[in-house]
Design a protein around this nucleic acid. Structure first.
Ligand code: MN
Ligand code: MN
Ligand code: ZN
Ligand code: ZN
Lengths: 132, 132
DNA sequence: ACACTTATTTAGAACCATTATAAACTGCAA
DNA sequence: TTGCAGTTTATAATGGTTCTAAATAAGTGT
């Protein structure tokens, strides 16, 4: 398995559940955005055994902490995650409630002129909301 | 009262509760960011009668729909609102869990080069997360 | 002022995404 | 193999938000 090493190197035991979740999350042609419930559904579709919802939450949070996933700031009753952990921005289609990645070449450089004393910029994220 | 007209013009009846919430939200030197629970506390501090939590939710959502408040996309278990409804961006201090307005002069122009067929840009919001 | 209609307020229940619990299980090093 | 820390799991608890339906208040017409 290609994820055993990755997990071990992160200090996470490569359990059956985590490896299967890795396949669902990272064995894909493209990166994608998901809520926990959407991920639960994908897992059900792709694997035979059951993984408890608690484990899905635990794993997603563990992966997020290790930097393999990130949360996307959005106003929704559910938390959105992204398998694309590179710096990038988003369109948010308000009608379809769907996120679309913006390539870095799609957005001009963001120039933050103001500084806050003793604070460092950790990330800069642009959210472009789309109407009809 | 200065808000009676404003509410009537919006098709909202100027009730005692709404007028009092207007005072808490809009009779301020500066605009500010808040969660419902923070607003509830401010209301308790500023006025003598009680306003039910349901009314606070109802009013905030009514004001948001009319464009007197807006939500700020953020990953938190609580929804954040802004009394500054002009287009502007935010710092988010991760340690203090506090939002800080960026003036438009603090951020260079955002240039979104990509278009989505049949969709119009409704808003562009930048969130700058701050570390120590 | 009064009656009538409709909007609003309210306490409390319901909802539901997320987190906590604690017992069973598993990976792994000694 | 044994022991232990890490992990999984069913289930309960949490808590922000929304819903409900009855009481109250505002607007309208007379
Ligand atoms: Mn989370
Ligand atoms: Mn809301
Ligand atoms: Zn993305
Ligand atoms: Zn703001």
């Amino acid at each position: 398995m290609k994820y055993i090493e990755k997990l071990r190197n992160s200090g996470l035991r490569p359990t059956k559940q985590r490896l299967q979740i890795c396949e669902v999350l990272f064995d894909t042609e493209r990166t994608f955005h998901f809520t926990i419930n959407q991920l639960e559904q994908r897992i059900k579709d792709k694997i035979d055994n059951k993984i408890s919802l608690a484990t899905i939450y635990n794993t997603v949070h563990a992966f997020e902490k290790k930097g393999y996933l990130k949360q996307i700031p959005l106003n929704s009753n559910q938390t959105y995650f992204d398998t694309n952990v590179t710096d990038h921005h988003h369109f948010y289609d308000l009608k379809k409630e769907k996120l679309i990645d913006l390539e870095n070449s799609d957005v001009g450089p963001i120039n933050i002129k103001r500084k806050i004393n003793g604070k460092k910029i950790k990330s800069i994220e642009v959210l472009v909301k789309l109407d009809d």
